[in-house]
């Protein structure tokens, strides 16, 4: 559990690498609709780890993840022992009787566990999903809020 902290896991790094390679190839020539890459989704069997951004204000922590194609019913957000877990699955829409020409979108199952940097008010946690963007709002506990200390000029 402790090893799966805020650092991006290996599968995520692989996704980024493939993304960068694809991007480099695209710069050289305009791609056609069909991909020259193998069309097997090799990561289908295992869970992917969505990328997360964290924004902090004086009183609140915001965790954000891009989860396109995920609906609120397919998503689970839990907070326990200062660990935030985002997990779920998404439906990959496939037209009927279709041949796949290009497959770049990531896997169906996902899970991400992050350690919270400060204690939060568990009862005040809120999560919203808008246009494929999940935002988890976690109010900081009174004792961990940022306080500005006025420096006296003697």
């Amino acid at each position: 559990m402790n090893t799966r902290t805020i650092l991006a896991p290996a599968t995520h790094a692989m996704d980024s690498l493939r993304h960068e390679i694809d991007r480099a190839f695209d710069r050289m020539s305009t791609p056609s609709l069909a991909s020259t890459w193998p069309t097997t989704r090799i990561l289908d069997a295992i869970r992917s780890n969505p990328a997360v951004n964290m924004i902090e204000s004086d009183n609140t922590l915001f965790f954000e993840a891009e989860l396109p194609g995920v609906t609120a019913t397919d998503l689970t957000v839990t907070v326990a022992e200062n660990m935030l877990t985002i997990s779920g699955c998404r439906t990959i829409e496939t037209p009927e009787e279709a041949t796949s020409l290009r497959r770049e979108r990531s896997t169906k199952q996902f899970e991400r566990i992050m350690r919270l940097p400060s204690s939060v008010d568990v009862d005040g946690i809120d999560a919203t999903l808008t246009d494929g963007v999940l935002t988890v709002t976690l109010p900081k506990l009174e004792g961990t809020r940022t306080r500005r200390i006025v420096v006296r000029d003697n």
Binding site: H19, D22, R23, D26, L33, A34, S35, E66, L67, P68, G69, I92, E93, T94, P95, E96, E97, A98, T99, S100, L101, R102, R103, E104, R105, S106, T130, D131, G132, V133
Partner: peptide, 24 residues
Amino acid sequence: YRAPVDVYETETEFRVIADMPGTC
């Protein structure tokens, strides 16, 4: 940013499905 896409071909159409979170 380069949105990841899936492309399918059926008898009557091509379908491009792109992950583009956060737009409208």
